[in-house]
Nucleic acid binder design. Structure first.
Lengths: 202, 202
DNA sequence: TGTACATCAGTGAACGCGCGTTCACTGATGTAC
DNA sequence: TGTACATCAGTGAACGCGCGTTCACTGATGTAC
């Protein structure tokens, strides 16, 4: 009656639902990045988790809501990895480490776990306003975290540089992934790496 | 019998089929850019042209073939416009004119007629190999045309710079289009403009 | 000059498919009294 | 202690929809003889 936490009435362990929800988001984050927003489907996603598609709607209102959440989670993870790379770099080499990591062959080859901006940029504008607001929140949080590694006299300037740098690198990465020939793809990545390092240092 | 050009046996004017084909490509080029490769559909496309969807296959083997052709045509057109902008610029201002044009609010607002790379980058890698080869041919032709306006000691260097510049600007444009707030969108475009001009001059 | 036939761009019904979402249901658990 | 009831994550059939593609057909035109 006064039960503030009614979870004890459930037939599954208290944290069961939340764990399933997290599994859905994690799997969706991978599927959306590798297949895109349309080709990633709820039935396939739930099947991968050994669940049936009907249960999805106990966790999310719509596919669009899941997309927004998966996008945010993916970007947070990439941001974590970039920060870790920066922190492991020798003093003064943080920015180089970030660019090298983002434009590495490994990142290029691993769309499913890579930056969701690179994997999805060109479709983001086609999502409804709610979703776009959510994308922007996620992107701005990422840019704010990266700002301290950027050149510039003020925080605003560092964020501006970070925004342009990341949208540019995302474009370079997405474009590289479309190149069929491996050698050429590597060369494109390398040219971009050099370009952005020079741009951001100069 | 020895009819090398049998078009005179058709019930439409000699160039009728070709003209319809061109109308399909033009309309498709707009639809693919504004709706993306999946949401742009053959039935909707043919309906817009006041034709029925069945007739589509007299002109193209598949939707994928149309996509590749539409992509190529779009990029050629954008390339034309950029070249014209460069040629109209005062001597020495060609590159600035190109960057200013590409990252202009007008280009940002007009996805349907804008650069197909910006509109579609992140889905290009998901298309089959045949299509990707065709994208690459189109992109390389564009880069080769733009190379003469790029800085660099050799043609290779100028093409490398051009490739990175255009993939970067495409990323910036696509990202800007996803930003819901107009003022912020304009600021992102402007920051990118400055960034690439400085990068390419320095 | 007439007639049988071939051509083929375009039509529109149909096929097979899979989507996002809804909904009545299941069944394990806890609550009320 | 027992029993009627509530809860709710997950199930799986179903709904409505629209896709890409195929195909038998139409009908205007030209060709053969």
């Amino acid at each position: 009656m006064m039960n503030i936490i009614p979870s004890s009435t459930m037939r599954y362990p208290d944290d069961h639902k939340q764990k399933v929800r997290e599994r859905i988001v994690r799997a969706a984050a991978r599927q959306f990045r590798s297949r895109g927003g349309e080709r990633a489907t709820i039935p396939a996603l739930m099947r991968d988790l050994r669940l049936t598609h009907g249960g999805f709607y106990r966790h999310f209102d719509s596919k669009e809501d899941l997309f927004a959440e998966a996008f945010g989670q993916s970007l947070r993870q990439v941001s974590d990895r970039l920060e870790a790379a920066a922190e492991q770099a020798p003093p003064g080499g943080e920015l180089t480490a970030i660019v090298d990591f983002y434009l590495s062959p490994e990142h290029c080859d691993d769309v499913a776990n890579g930056c969701p901006v690179a994997a999805l940029v060109s479709e983001l504008a086609r999502h409804p306003g709610d979703a776009r607001n959510s994308f922007q929140t996620a992107v701005r949080a990422h840019i704010r975290r990266m700002a301290r590694y950027m050149p510039g006299a003020t925080p605003e300037e560092r964020e501006r540089t970070g925004s342009t740098l990341f949208s540019g690198m995302a474009g370079a990465l997405a474009m590289a992934r479309a190149i069929p020939d491996e050698a050429r793809r590597r060369r494109a990545l390398d040219a971009a790496r050099r370009f952005y390092l020079a741009a951001v240092r100069g």
